[in-house]
Simulated assay, not measured.
Amino acid sequence: MADTPPGAPGAPQSRSEKRHQSHIGSTYAAFIKHLSEVGKLDAGLAECAAVSVVNALLHRIHPDEAKDLQAQLPRKLLDFLPKEEAQKPGRILGKSRDDFLRAVAEDLRKDISEVEPIVRAVFLGLREHISEGEAQDVESNLSRDLQDLWRRTQ
């Protein structure tokens, strides 16, 4: 029976790999905990909202900017984003605030009237997690009414 090569699925992890995985998990857990506190959301909703709002946001900004934003987000959050070819960052799915809120409402299976406070909470958590320069870059890629929503989290 041959040994499983390091890094292959099912292979034992080195201490360094275990520490790395632990760091990824703790960074994500801290991010979700912060969203829960900021938005007064239960952890499950905060997690679903983070995925939905980030996914919607990535589809409304330029692909290069989407990559820059993704580089500053918890890696585990990125693992939860859809991977389908049709879900490429930067693909505009309606530019308006209402389109954005509608997309999040559909994802979360909530009425559109319920999601604005959730989106604000996630935007606030994102703004506090990323650099100020990145926050400004994201804002400059949004439509005016979405910029207003992004700014109202300050």
Results as ranks from 00 to 15, higher is better:
100 F>C: 10
121 A>R: 01
14 S>Q: 08
33 K>E: 15
38 V>K: 12
129 H>F: 01
14 S>F: 04
21 Q>S: 11
64 D>W: 06
102 R>A: 12
48 C>T: 07
99 D>L: 04
93 L>M: 14
142 L>T: 03
97 R>Y: 02
106 E>Q: 15
148 D>Q: 10
57 L>W: 06
76 K>P: 04
148 D>K: 07
59 H>E: 10
36 S>F: 02
36 S>R: 03
145 D>S: 05
70 Q>H: 00
9 P>H: 05
93 L>K: 15
135 A>K: 08
131 S>D: 11
127 R>G: 08
66 A>P: 00
151 R>D: 15
29 A>Q: 11
9 P>D: 04
107 D>E: 15
30 A>N: 14
27 T>A: 07
38 V>P: 00
154 Q>Y: 08
33 K>Y: 14
135 A>V: 11
4 T>Q: 08
124 L>E: 07
21 Q>E: 11
64 D>T: 12
122 V>K: 03
18 K>D: 12
51 V>G: 04
49 A>I: 03
46 A>R: 01
58 L>D: 03
26 S>A: 09
31 F>W: 08
2 A>W: 13
149 L>I: 05
53 V>H: 03
47 E>R: 09
116 E>N: 02
144 R>D: 07
23 H>D: 11
94 G>N: 09
118 I>Y: 00
79 D>P: 01
104 V>M: 05
58 L>G: 02
141 N>E: 15
125 G>H: 02
57 L>V: 05
120 R>P: 00
45 L>M: 06
105 A>L: 05
63 P>W: 02
42 D>R: 11
55 N>H: 14
86 A>G: 10
114 E>F: 00
98 D>P: 00
54 V>C: 11
50 A>K: 01
86 A>I: 10
118 I>A: 02
136 Q>M: 10
123 F>Q: 01
150 W>C: 00
2 A>D: 13
106 E>V: 12
144 R>Y: 06
24 I>Y: 04
76 K>F: 06
10 G>R: 04
123 F>V: 04
138 V>Q: 06
61 I>V: 05
13 Q>G: 09
37 E>F: 08
138 V>R: 04
28 Y>H: 09
12 P>Y: 02
